[in-house]
């Protein structure tokens, strides 16, 4: 349906159903769409990177030091889900705003002389909010892959002369790569298309492709173009994901 629609044209109130590639040409040549595509990719790749980077130590801690409280730790991680996503994103406005919690606190500490403005209503705000919102989704797959590592392999690596750091890079990280790849995909794919977060905390500098798709569908009343943008972003995401998976093929083969 979406795919068909993307080859049609909107003639004011009616759909012109003659086949055309104009929508795609527009989607890939108009600077505004290029900008939005690249910004979306930049934001979601950065979010993916930081989410995985932050989630890994947490998953590591729960898996190796959780003892018999692993279930409790995992339960605590789900606590943010008790409030709605929308509410959590709104809270970031309160935290990051001009007179927000963070700025007031830093001013009070006299670490800054005037409120920071680069943290709200731009890409950075979107990155911070998304990283927080998606962290639990990254922790779980990494946790599972860490749990699956046979503990005797860790002893074997120590026995064969590895210190803790070497052990991490030679055994733990390679064996938990399937979890890292899984977590990356789980974060990357949905965040590219997120539109609530940029709308709430992104201002105009933080808008992403999904916001444009929404505008085209509703206000601009150009469903075919919106469809073309959607299909394009789908293809781009799929392409990047496949490249990423192929890149990590070595780690993803079944042990």
């Amino acid at each position: 349906m979406m795919f068909l629609l993307s080859f049609w044209t909107q003639d004011y109130l009616v759909l012109n159903k003659t086949f055309t590639l104009n929508n795609y040409i527009e989607a890939f040549t108009q600077p505004v769409y290029q900008l939005l595509f690249s910004r979306s990719l930049y934001i979601s790749l950065t979010v993916t990177f930081f989410t995985v980077l932050l989630a890994y130590p947490m998953a590591y801690f729960i898996s190796f030091y959780g003892g018999n409280r692993k279930a409790l730790w995992l339960f605590l991680i789900t606590i943010p889900f008790w409030t709605s996503y929308l509410l959590r994103m709104f809270l970031w406005k309160v935290i990051l705003g001009y007179n927000g919690v963070l700025n007031s606190f830093l001013l009070w500490l006299e670490m800054i002389s005037e409120p920071l403005t680069f943290i709200l209503y731009n890409s950075n705000a979107v990155i911070i909010a998304l990283t927080h919102g998606w962290a639990p989704f990254a922790i779980l797959p990494i946790f599972v892959s860490l749990e699956k590592i046979d503990r005797s392999l860790l002893e074997a690596s120590r026995d064969l002369g590895d210190g803790p750091i070497k052990q991490f890079f030679r055994v733990i990280l390679p064996l938990s790569m399937p979890g890292v790849v899984g977590a990356s995909l789980i974060i990357f794919i949905p965040t590219v298309g997120d539109y609530i977060t940029p709308k709430l905390v992104g201002g105009t500098d933080g808008l992403m492709i999904a916001n444009m798709i929404q505008v085209q569908f509703s206000k601009a009343n150009n469903a075919p173009l919106a469809a073309a943008l959607s299909v394009s972003s789908l293809v781009i995401v799929a392409f990047i994901s496949i490249v990423f998976v192929l890149f990590n093929k070595k780690y993803l083969r079944r042990y």
Partner: peptide
């Protein structure tokens, strides 16, 4: 353990699954 003059053969062998025979032996 990594600094002791001992090496161990584990009950379940603890062969590194992400490495081949040569890499395991050379570990």
């Amino acid at each position: 353990p990594n600094l002791r003059p001992t090496n161990m053969v584990f009950q379940n062998y603890a062969i590194f699954p992400h490495l081949n025979v040569e890499e395991n032996v050379a570990y």
